[in-house]
């Protein structure tokens, strides 16, 4: 269980999070939505102790995360898998080595690494890419590697900050299926997203944040208009970058309904 208890985080002139209290149960699948700058990334950074809360307490499975000593941070990071929008793979390591790295840092025996890494790569559908380097892969494949790395040590919690943000809708949906699969095996998933269609389709718990406060927490749909506009802007930009104009028209059409 993850518990935020009256957590606040202030930046110099901005509010990151403002008195947020929330509980996320083991095995839950939670979407974190809200407009840009509302505090979603702050929420996640607090969870992995990339930044420290100014007020309140954050507990993951009973372990206090706030004011954690630097020595304990690596241990926290190993218990919580993390996936980012920009994949963050080690560029000079192959797919296999990238995933193996997460096991090497906890001194897992080579034999076990040789057994587990191919298993996870198969599960992610990229077994044939083991010897490729990240820059030889498509965006979707890179995200699969990142997820493989995040789950190889079987963390109880998987955090994803806009994991489909750089992916086209079909690929994004494939990634969602993988996350769903991982969730069904018991892993708690917290996912930040702007993708309305995904949130609507999945029908999971949705926590909406605005100006650092939780403004809505319910099961079901994205249903947040201001955020929606933001999301579409982001989407358009990415789509244009990918020169996939047919899809943009299709999306816009869909929204006007």
């Amino acid at each position: 269980m993850i518990v935020f208890d009256h957590v606040s985080k202030y930046y110099k002139s901005n509010v990151g999070l403002d008195d947020v209290s929330v509980r996320i149960n083991e095995g839950d699948f939670v979407f974190l939505v809200g407009p840009s700058g509302s505090g979603k990334s702050t929420f996640i950074k607090l969870l992995i102790h990339e930044i420290n809360a100014d007020k309140g307490s954050i507990k993951i499975r009973g372990h206090e995360v706030t004011n954690m000593s630097a020595r304990h941070v690596p241990i926290l990071r190993r218990r919580v898998g993390i996936v980012f929008q920009d994949f963050r793979l080690l560029p000079k390591k192959t797919v296999y080595e990238n995933v193996a790295f997460a096991m090497e840092i906890i001194h897992k025996p080579k034999k076990l690494i040789k057994k587990n890494v191919p298993q996870v790569l198969t599960m992610m559908g990229i077994a044939d890419k083991a010897d490729k380097y990240p820059d030889e892969l498509s965006a979707g494949e890179q995200q699969r590697v990142a997820i493989a790395r995040a789950i190889i040590n079987r963390p109880r919690v998987l955090i994803a900050d806009e994991p489909t943000g750089n992916l086209d809708p079909d690929t994004a949906w494939e990634i969602m299926q993988l996350l769903n699969q991982i969730n069904q095996r018991g892993t708690t998933i917290i996912m930040v997203t702007h993708a309305k269609d995904i949130v609507d389709k999945m029908g999971k718990r949705v926590i909406a944040i605005e100006k650092g406060r939780i403004v809505r927490d319910e099961f079901g749909a994205y249903g947040y208009q201001e955020a929606l506009e933001n999301a579409e802007m982001t989407f358009d930009t990415i789509q244009i970058q990918r020169r996939d104009t047919s899809r943009i028209r299709f999306r816009r059409g869909g929204d006007e309904k």
Binding site: P74, R77, F84, R88, F101, I105
Partner: peptide, 16 residues
Amino acid sequence: AEEISIMKYVGATNWF
């Protein structure tokens, strides 16, 4: 620097 920050995200200790 980028690589090092990634290693830290994955949970590598400073000594590692």
